[in-house]
Design a binder for these strands. Structure first.
Lengths: 254, 254
DNA sequence: ACTGATTTGTGCGTATGTATC
DNA sequence: TGATACATACGCACAAATCAG
């Protein structure tokens, strides 16, 4: 007889271990599984799903193969800390970075509208005091987990209707291309950290007590004219900004 | 008759507004003035010193001219946040950076001794599992305020006695030079953030609830051989790491 | 969206002491 | 000595920006 309360369907064509694997993956994604990265023991999972421990082990093995979890003999099974190494270098896009690390990029636009530039934004873009800018705010996700918030400011002049275009494209790059911006170059980046506001914490799905990395960047066109001022908030837990030096080489004298 | 309780000396040759300026500056330095960077209102200061508001304004104007405070109409007068912009670029040293921003660099060695490399350090320096490294830990200060902790790891081989040399020099660069290391190049930098441990918070003189920037860097010699692995903790409040791009240009696609 | 309170910014008038011509 | 200029300090009033309710 089929157990109505069970999370599993023993008659289904997908193997039970795979159903368990899927369920575990969903709970991991939702962040509801295991306190602080440690998964429940194989025995307790076996009890919960009313299956043999071997079946659980198959599911856990699959998680391990995916690089999502890691088992340590005598200790337990732990979620691997998937940090996104975000290299700040030539011609890198967030989606490329995430893909290169075997994760799936996603995200969505939170808002896109005109507003009066704040002092910081106006200064960065070399605009007048009460100049109009277009603000695009979006979340950035890797493997379905939001890891960052991006706020992009564009001078309103020459970008008329951009706040609408953004919603028509799924891709910021594509939207920019439609307004004639094919390439832009990062002129400078400053990195700091702080605690998130309650709204930011909610968007990032993290407590307000966990710090976020704040990266501010000015992007210019070929002629050095400022095109975009971008501010990105990253989950400090999950993102490391990486600055590699080539032969020419940066150097720090600390 | 001279008021004994007054903080001011009206018969003195220095103007009253200047005496007030000096008193305020001292209290700002001591950190006893105003909660969270906001100075008392001009009116309340006028009451406290029993002078006219114009007189207070002259003192505040002087603070403003010094770049110590900033007045915002309708809002109040605030201490300016003196952030150290720490450019990660060619041939910059902490002391140069701090000096360039009109502040005084200082700091001192917390400890310098041999220890077995942790996995992270051993990996970075390409050393064996139980290799010896020399750890130098120090604080870094600008204008007398500690803004960072630096932890430097050097392969023990070829640096014999370095942990003693460090205490003989006031300068890390000088100590390195004595061991034949004149130049080194930053190969890579990763930046993240977290909350400090209680010890770190104490050293940085900040609450454990305020995040710190964590910068990890690998320094190599001309031949690309790893020389030093450095880990720096910065007060996120007071330090911004800055990555400028030249013509060649970094770029971020977020 | 409005209101009242607070705070800084500004102008003008007055008075006093000090340095300069 | 007198005239002038300047810095200092006080008092009053109002404008402008901000903030809390």
């Amino acid at each position: 007889m089929k157990q109505l309360l069970s999370e599993l369907d023993r008659d289904a064509r997908v193997p039970v271990w795979q159903q368990i694997y899927n369920l575990l993956m969903m709970e991991i994604r939702a962040g509801t599984l295991g306190p602080e990265g440690k998964l429940p023991s194989a025995n307790s999972l076996a009890a919960r799903f009313a299956v043999n421990r071997h079946t659980i082990r198959q599911a856990l093995k699959a998680l391990e193969d995916d690089g999502v979890a890691e088992s340590r003999q005598g200790s337990g099974t732990f979620l691997v800390r998937r940090v996104v190494d975000y290299p700040i270098s030539n011609k890198t896009r967030f989606s490329d970075i995430v893909l290169a690390q075997g994760m799936a990029p996603s995200g969505h636009i939170l808002q896109a509208r005109k507003r009066v530039a704040s002092k910081e934004v106006a200064d960065a873009l070399v605009l007048g005091k009460r100049a109009q800018v277009i603000l695009v705010e979006r979340t950035v996700a890797a493997d379905g987990v939001v890891v960052g918030i991006g706020r992009h400011f564009y001078p309103s002049a020459g970008m008329a209707g951009f706040e609408k275009t953004v919603f028509e494209c799924h891709n910021l790059t594509e939207a920019l291309a439609r307004h004639g911006i094919e390439t832009y170059f990062r002129k400078s980046t400053t990195v700091s950290a702080r605690l998130p506001s309650s709204r930011e914490a909610r968007l990032l799905n993290q407590p307000v007590s966990e710090p976020v990395l704040v990266s501010k960047a000015l992007n210019v066109d070929r002629n050095g004219k400022p095109i975009e001022f971008g501010m990105a908030l990253f989950l400090a837990n999950r993102v490391r900004l990486q600055f590699d030096s080539d032969s020419d080489s940066d150097r720090l004298g600390l």
